[in-house]
Design a binder for these strands. Sequence first.
DNA 1: CATGAATGAGGTTTCATTCAT
DNA 2: GATGAATGAAACCTCATTCAT
Lengths: 213, 213, 213, 213
Amino acid sequence: MKKIKSLNTEPETKADSRRVILLAAQQEFAAHGLSGARVDSIAERAGLNKRLIYYYFNSKDQLFLEVLEQAYSEIRAAEQVLNLDQIDPIQAIRQLITFTWDYYLEHPEFISLLNSENQSEATHLKKSKHIRELTSPLIQMLGSVLLKGQEKGLFRSGIDPIQLYISIASICYFYLSNNHTLSTIFGKNLLSPKAKVQRLSHMIDLILGYVLL
Amino acid sequence: MKKIKSLNTEPETKADSRRVILLAAQQEFAAHGLSGARVDSIAERAGLNKRLIYYYFNSKDQLFLEVLEQAYSEIRAAEQVLNLDQIDPIQAIRQLITFTWDYYLEHPEFISLLNSENQSEATHLKKSKHIRELTSPLIQMLGSVLLKGQEKGLFRSGIDPIQLYISIASICYFYLSNNHTLSTIFGKNLLSPKAKVQRLSHMIDLILGYVLL
Amino acid sequence: MKKIKSLNTEPETKADSRRVILLAAQQEFAAHGLSGARVDSIAERAGLNKRLIYYYFNSKDQLFLEVLEQAYSEIRAAEQVLNLDQIDPIQAIRQLITFTWDYYLEHPEFISLLNSENQSEATHLKKSKHIRELTSPLIQMLGSVLLKGQEKGLFRSGIDPIQLYISIASICYFYLSNNHTLSTIFGKNLLSPKAKVQRLSHMIDLILGYVLL
Amino acid sequence: MKKIKSLNTEPETKADSRRVILLAAQQEFAAHGLSGARVDSIAERAGLNKRLIYYYFNSKDQLFLEVLEQAYSEIRAAEQVLNLDQIDPIQAIRQLITFTWDYYLEHPEFISLLNSENQSEATHLKKSKHIRELTSPLIQMLGSVLLKGQEKGLFRSGIDPIQLYISIASICYFYLSNNHTLSTIFGKNLLSPKAKVQRLSHMIDLILGYVLL
DNA sequence: CATGAATGAGGTTTCATTCAT
DNA sequence: GATGAATGAAACCTCATTCAT
């Protein structure tokens, strides 16, 4: 549990504290889940007084929600930049898979947070107002990719973009979220460099095998 | 949190108490995760004294491990009965998907337990002795299905059974494990009867689309 | 804050703990009020682990309610023993005043608890089921005293026993509950032996002056 | 907990802030008692920064003392206006009771503050310098009323004005301070319009029944 | 005169675990 | 085998107060 160091040597300004707490909380929640996370540890990680956490966020649960909202908006923002609807549809599918895979690899905390939230039956997320709007652009984007591919005679028809998106997310997510048990059961490290390359390759084959006519 | 009733009115025998505790623990761990589960609640669910839990299982963690081992051996036993290598390969793939989907649907606690264990980085599972040998028969079975399909000129070549198995598990598992957040984000109930039928159909299309030449 | 010593040298039995906590709580609540009382102090007074308080009573508030209920039932029990309806009515009024005065003097915690409860707007008492039944016998008893006095041509008619009881309680209670501010303002100790005698005498004069024809 | 609005839109002057805080504190202390009151809430009620409270009043306790002093001087000022010694003695007694009753009814915070202060054993009041001299004029006034009534052959002799004053205060105060528990115990609302009229009538009867020959 | 940010001490409550029978 | 009573450690959260500007 390392203390977060501020990048610049100047003393943090007021608004910084909020951000520092949010970052520390993300780490702690990711590492231990919601009920396993300790407010004390978050304060320690942040290098700030515990009381301040309650000053800015009113409770552990509210803090968790904000961490979660931030995580969602970050991935959605990154996805938006892909501009899948402006490139070749086959390439677009490849890119979406690769991006999703890489993003999950680089953001293990995202997976961890989602697992926690699902264990809480999404009680936090349901209180959030702007979460739902975040996702629709992505699905729309994937929808137009599928349409374009179909019009070009490349893709099969009748693919539901939501189903496809969930499946792409599934195969990336599960491999990583369940890496520990899978690696234990299969008796080999599923995250070796070689294994990662093989997995990505398999996933692209799988999805394209389905999508392409 | 209902108390588990013993079916016969006679006082439970020694082995019964153990089983009742194990069942109660499974429910509690599934509902709240490892750190969220309460030993008190387990005792209450079991209708037995808390001290007895320690008498039989020594600690909460050891109890969790036993619950986990039991869950694994149950699903592996069920898979074994499929006898996929004795039927038509296409049908075998269909059956494997359908079975996996149904099993996860009927055993939400299995998903929940795995999530908890992965959050703990599989520390419990790593201590288990007989877990590893449980999985290999399944993969071997799937391997021979793939081989047979390929020999018959139906399936593409070069499919890694482990990769495929993980992918099949992924698309079933993730949809259910993340149902709460997904339903919230997409703003619709992903577990309505209709939605479940559509999902299964999509998953079979997806996998067969990939496997078939 | 003295630790309560058990009267007998034997180790306390199980059920004793509950009583010891209740007594310790009464003292602490009386001394500091509900919000001023500390659960830690109660545990210390009782010479028992703090956790045990939550084991027997589920929360500070529930503990407070039980203390309050006990206090009420004690005073009501003591009042019942007076058997006012079996003695001369004038003597009965004198006795009721004297008893009330003495009881409040000997049970300052009762006054303190009532003050706390009124500050909480009787939220605890309102949850109690058997409180209301406790008081009616007393009022009935006073009612028959008044009736008898009236029939004997001694007392004025039309006296409401509830009003009279409240007034008697008032003049005893207020003098003691507000003793600190009154003594400060009037610059003399209102609880000197002499002052107490004078007060009781005044109160009897006051009430009899009103009641008698 | 409504924020106190300043009547004029202009920025408050220095003395205003002090007064606004004092008013807010009175409300908060009255509502929750000394230990139950929150400095944060007082600041919020006042619409001013918490730090300002410390700027003007140094501590919560000192603030409480000032609130208390103000409350005392207000009631004493109001009593002074009565000029009881210039009217008919019987009427004077009636007026004193009615005034006391009405004042307590209109100033529930006064009762609440006194209760808190007595719970603190008058520690604040004892530090106050000008409290003690506030009360003597009232007692002197009541003394001369009693004397006049006695000289006119209306009142009994030997009535101690302090005792009588305390008794009058008692019967008004207790009924209101303990209204919540009394209403709960007797199972009826003691502050309904009708109940209030009956109480006042009873109190006047009680005191006059004692005072008059 | 005024304020947002920060804090140390301590509050109630919860927890896995053990004792004693 | 089984149990009610008991506990130390630590959890979340709150409070009056102060700092820095």
